[in-house]
Computed example of a mutant assay.
Amino acid sequence: MKAASSTAPGGRLAAALESPFVGMSPWIVFSVLVGPGRFGLAVGLALGLSVAVFCAARRLYRGASLKILEVADVLFFAVLAVVGVASSPATHRWLETYAGEISNLMLVVIAFASMAVRVPFTMQYGRERVGPEYWKSPEFLHINYVITGVWGTAFLVAALAGGFGDLVLHNPDNLWTAWIIQIAAMVTAMSFTEWYPQVVQARTHGAGTPPPVRNLLTPLAALIIPVGVVSLIFDAAASWFGVGLILIGVILARAINKDVEMTPRGGEHPPRKRSPWRLR
């Protein structure tokens, strides 16, 4: 079922709801925020966001089938909120430490289970952005399996990083394991979601030159500089390491910008059509 166009009332909301990022946003918010003293805030925001997304989607897409993520969002965070309210102080402290890893692992299960039953969760969003004639095309199916797998892997990396901080470092608020690595995994998955459909379209249909790998790496390169600054501010690593990250980020940014400026603008690289399978 198609939503209104981006120029119609509610069009921007429709465009947002058609993106899998919206369905994953409660999990990302919760994973990044949760920690000692922040469980209530994290689960409250995640549940509120889940309910808002669910209600907005039901209002905009009347009669449309429920999405896996929409249902999982509301159920998981509602149960987590009830458990948090009813739990003992000891259980509450345990949730503050490990709930982030539980939520990340839950999304890993959702991602790979949806692939196992042949309905990768990104496919439900993709179908709202393309015509029915594309739904069973090999390219559309391939793109959604790959992107769903990448998101599952990203949340697995986040869970492992958080678990390392909790169980090995005994520091749930470790800057690297609780924040930087997890955010980098999410940024990588987001960038891949934008980049990969264009690659498939170019290779399959000859729709222009495939986007270079630098397009995939640009968001990560942009992340290196603030990571270096934050590591210096919070003394999260040796000073030389933080300075090195900043220098590497500057060098990569300059190299990418120089590469973009040197790219011919004539007929050598024909304009690339918007991929009908892009999920954003």
Rank of each mutant, 00 (worst) to 15 (best):
Y134V: 02
L175W: 02
A237W: 04
P20W: 11
P138R: 05
S114H: 03
L107G: 00
V51C: 11
P26M: 12
F241Y: 14
Y61F: 15
G267P: 10
M24A: 15
A113T: 06
N144C: 07
K2M: 12
G23S: 06
S31T: 15
A78M: 14
I28Q: 01
V157W: 03
V150Y: 02
I251P: 02
W195Q: 02
H269K: 00
P197R: 00
S87L: 14
W240Q: 03
W277N: 11
V168W: 02
H142W: 00
G10I: 07
P219R: 04
I256S: 00
V157E: 08
H170K: 09
T263A: 08
L247G: 01
R280Y: 15
F164T: 12
F30D: 04
G35N: 11
V213D: 01
A16G: 11
M115L: 14
M1V: 15
W277C: 11
T122G: 06
G126M: 08
V168L: 13
L69F: 11
R280C: 12
V119W: 02
A64K: 05
N174A: 12
V83P: 10
P276L: 06
R265T: 15
L160A: 14
E194F: 13
V79A: 15
R59Y: 05
G35D: 13
A238H: 08
D173T: 12
L105E: 04
L107Q: 01
E101F: 09
G266R: 02
K2V: 09
Y134D: 10
S114Q: 04
S191H: 03
G149C: 07
I248H: 01
V243M: 07
T209G: 03
L107Y: 10
A237D: 09
F76N: 07
E128V: 00
I102D: 00
L45Q: 03
G266Q: 03
L247E: 03
I181L: 11
D166N: 13
V117C: 09
V51Y: 01
A184F: 07
S50E: 06
R127T: 14
L156H: 03
L107T: 06
T193E: 09
A111S: 15
P138H: 06
Q198P: 05
M106I: 11
S31C: 15
